[in-house]
Design a protein around this nucleic acid. Structure first.
Length: 638
DNA sequence: CTTAGGG
DNA sequence: CCCTAAG
């Protein structure tokens, strides 16, 4: 039980167990504290900060527009014949306006010579505006090429499931002036590929196609950016956290796993998924490790250059508002749901990321989908994001579920994505962080300057149904303003992934990228003040609660917590008490008046029975003996 | 820190 | 969920 948490292996597995043992108070506390501590780092914050700066500096924006590059790089890894991974990156443009925003960017001496510039569309700072500003992001390669370069990068890698180490070829096509830069890019790409291959070896070999499109149409060399981005992010411990987060999210619940609610479903992850996750973690770690910690630090503190951070900034912006989750609904649904080849195509619009195209085989698991999206987005936005998949507004936690099974392949419309930053605050984070850290994070905790806003931002990218995501609309910024939310950013992603396609690109040379800014532990307190993200109780949780209360009574919430929610770090005994209160109320009102996920009447009946029983018997006998209060309860009721 | 309640 | 008073 206790062990749960720690698992280095796969984040997922570990999640379950919260650090805190059942031990009475102390344990709990610990958990809480932990969370708080971890919470500090939010990518979003960084983003927000950056965004703010950007806005301010909007002037500076140098539109990269003019210069465009196209680069195409094809990397081929031949290994086993397994399915090749193909990553296509279309031009991206990111403009980063403020250098300082991120703060950390400066350091980054990007090898590639590329610079991201953000152009603030709006000078106004208002949140919405900010987004707009963010919206235009173009990547310009400044260094060598004063000129614009349009680069289309294509990466194609075929990885064998287990053995990827093959050769990678990078082909660059039509690049106007890329020679050196390009080279750099290639190198990056190769690295990625290689690394990815290595990392992925276990898993993937599928075909994944990811295309990123810029709003403007300009194409950028993604690779570089991505690489950089990744590098940055990864470097920042965030990546690890992310994973954790993910894991946490996935954490299992004792009770039945459900797709909807978060955790339960995750349980599955432990088993099968664990692998992937583990891998990820591994990757993350590696990356993290690889990523220079130093870089991070630098990044954090320095604001001078904009680069990669920006994206995040935009996000952060959104976060700023209380909204912890940012949703960007996707407007584009270009792709028909199912592809003929059994691939499902998605288009995601959001923030800074222009567009990502993803094609994934129907047989791909949700987990692979998430990974693919995460990687793609991460590359662009930053490393700390976790992607959640929403189906008809409900989060699908089970990564093992295939698109086919979920019906996503049939109805793309119902598909949505959520980008969740790894925030410490969330219980999830808490749990995870510790475990994952060992390998990678050891380095150090990033400094925590507090950026602007925090909270645990969650970005939702709704696909067709933007409506779903709307909750915390926020951020965004790209040119595309989608209908749904105000957020203008759009990211479209199309993925084609085979079952396992994973994003290959991640690894970057830290050196190259070193910039990531992001984390800010920042004003925890200030941030802490923010409300915790709402986490509705799942039916299984309710059941566990009812069961515990039946046996323990209504005056021993700490015991209830330990008994039934020991693993749920995010459920405090106060939460349980409150939930019970609401349950009692819910059970008292007509079904029509109830909201949220319906709780089985049977459970509500038990709630009423237990409630009346325990109110009448204020005694709170120790449940131990009475393991069966329930039985008595019924009698009591009547 | 826990409980118990109000907000 | 948060905040707080009381224990």
């Amino acid at each position: 039980m206790v062990s749960k948490k720690r698992l280095y292996n796969g984040g997922f597995d570990g999640f379950l167990a919260p650090v805190v043992p059942k031990a009475p108070r102390s344990s709990r506390r610990i958990s809480h504290k932990k969370s708080s501590a971890g919470s500090e780092i939010c990518p979003f914050e960084l983003l927000a900060a950056v965004a703010g700066k950007l806005l301010q500096e909007s002037e500076t924006s140098v539109s990269s527009t003019g210069p465009e590059r196209k680069e195409q790089i094809t990397v081929h890894e031949e290994g086993v014949k397994q399915e090749p991974l193909e990553v296509k990156i279309n031009p991206l443009r990111l403009d980063y306006l403020d250098q300082g925003c991120c703060g950390e960017n400066e350091f980054v001496p990007v090898p590639s010579n590329l610079e991201l510039k953000l152009e603030p569309a709006v000078k106004d700072l208002p949140q919405s505006d900010n987004d707009s500003a963010l919206e235009h992001a173009s990547i310009v390669s400044t260094s060598d090429f004063s000129k614009e370069v349009n680069a289309n990068v294509k990466l194609e890698t075929s990885c064998d499931g287990m053995m990827d180490s093959k050769e990678t070829k990078v082909q660059t096509n039509a690049v106007e002036k890329l020679s050196e830069d390009f080279t750099a890019v290639k190198s990056c790409v190769n690295h990625r590929v290689l690394s990815s291959s290595c990392n992925n070896a276990h898993l993937h070999r599928n075909n994944v196609k990811i295309g990123i499109r810029d709003d403007d149409e300009n194409y950028f060399s993604f690779n570089q950016h991505i690489a950089k981005m990744r590098a940055l992010r990864w470097q920042s411990r965030p990546g690890c956290r992310r994973i954790r987060k993910l894991l946490t999210t996935t954490r299992h619940w004792k009770s039945a796993p459900k797709l909807k609610s978060y955790e339960p479903s995750n349980a599955t992850s432990r088993g099968v998924k664990a692998f992937d996750q583990d891998r990820k973690n591994i990757y993350m770690r590696e990356r993290c490790q690889e990523a220079t910690d130093a870089k991070r630090r630098k990044l954090f503190h320095h604001n001078s250059k904009p680069d990669y951070v920006q994206e995040t900034s935009s996000e952060s912006i959104s976060n700023t508002p209380k909204a912890k989750s940012v949703t960007s609904s996707v407007i584009n649904h270009k792709s028909p749901f199912q592809s003929k080849d059994g691939h499902v195509k998605f288009s995601i619009n959001s923030f800074k990321v222009p567009e990502l195209y993803i094609e994934i085989p129907e047989t791909s698991t949700i987990g692979s989908l998430k990974r693919t999206v995460v990687e793609a987005v991460t590359a662009i936005l930053g490393g700390e994001l976790h992607v959640g998949v929403l189906l008809q507004g409900e989060k699908i936690n089970d990564d093992n579920t295939t698109l086919q099974q979920t019906g996503v392949s049939l109805n793309s419309d119902t598909l949505g994505f959520i980008l969740e930053p790894n925030l410490p605050e969330a219980s999830q984070i808490e749990q995870f962080e510790p475990p994952s850290l060992p390998p990678c994070d050891n380095h150090e905790p990033p400094p925590p300057p507090p950026p602007i806003s925090l909270a645990s931002p969650i970005m939702d990218v709704g696909f067709l149904n933007s409506s779903v995501d709307v909750d915390p609309p926020v951020v965004t910024c790209l040119e595309n303003i989608t209908e749904n939310n105000q957020e203008s950013k759009q990211v479209s992603i199309e993925e084609t992934v085979d079952t396992k396609a994973i994003v290959p690109i991640r690894q970057l040379n830290p050196e190259t990228l070193a910039m990531v800014p992001l984390n800010h532990k920042v004003s925890k307190k200030t941030e802490l003040s923010q409300r915790r993200t709402r986490r509705p109780f799942s039916v299984s949780e309710v059941e566990a609660l009812v069961e515990a209360v039946e046996t323990l009574g209504t005056g021993r919430w700490r015991d209830v917590k330990i008994r039934a929610f020991d693993d749920a770090n995010h459920r405090t005994y106060v939460d349980l008490k409150d939930k019970w209160k609401t349950l009692v109320h819910t059970a008292s009102i007509s079904p029509q008046q109830r909201r949220g996920e319906p709780v089985p009447q049977a459970l509500l009946d038990r709630v009423l029975a237990a409630h009346s029983f325990w109110t009448q018997n204020q005694l709170k006998p120790h449940g131990k003996h009475q393991t069966e209060p329930i039985q008595t309860l019924p009698a009591v009721k009547v």
